[in-house]
């Protein structure tokens, strides 16, 4: 497979890794909302342990993705986390979906597309009008 294809595949894997880390955030929040009878159980309960394992896996996957993905793309792809947490929070934590939040999430997704495929989109559009 050529390098560009690998970059696209691993950009996708990077986004999946951000999703895994977002799910771990939701689990941590779920755990924080509960009350425990001891300090120790606040840290050592199934939710928190699974969350940290997921977070660790996400770190490893992200690290591997950097073999193909540019460092400059990292923070941009990570911002997809705001979108994932927004959607997951709505489904699992019944957090509100406001107009402001929705517009923000659309902008983040749009920005990621422009950042990744801006050159291709521009070429496509300029060919259409050529």
């Amino acid at each position: 497979m050529n390098k560009d294809t690998m970059v696209i595949i691993f950009s996708g894997v990077f986004l999946c890794s951000v999703l895994i880390s977002s799910i771990s955030q939701i689990l941590l929040k779920k755990s924080a909302d509960r009350t425990y009878d001891s300090r120790l159980k606040e840290y050592l309960n199934p939710l928190v342990i699974v969350a940290y394992i997921m977070f660790f896996c996400s770190m490893m996957i992200t690290m591997y993705c950097y073999r193909y993905v540019d460092v400059s793309a990292g923070p941009i792809f990570e911002s997809a986390g705001y979108v994932f947490v927004g959607i997951l929070g709505f489904i699992f934590l019944k957090e509100k979906f406001t107009v402001k939040k929705t517009i923000g999430m659309i902008l983040i997704l749009l920005g990621i597309v422009v950042f990744s495929f801006g050159g291709e989109i521009f070429n496509f559009i300029s060919k259409m009008f050529a």
Partner: peptide
């Protein structure tokens, strides 16, 4: 484009 998106969210 991403930046104002993050601020809004």
């Amino acid at each position: 484009i991403v930046f104002p998106g993050v601020v809004l969210v």
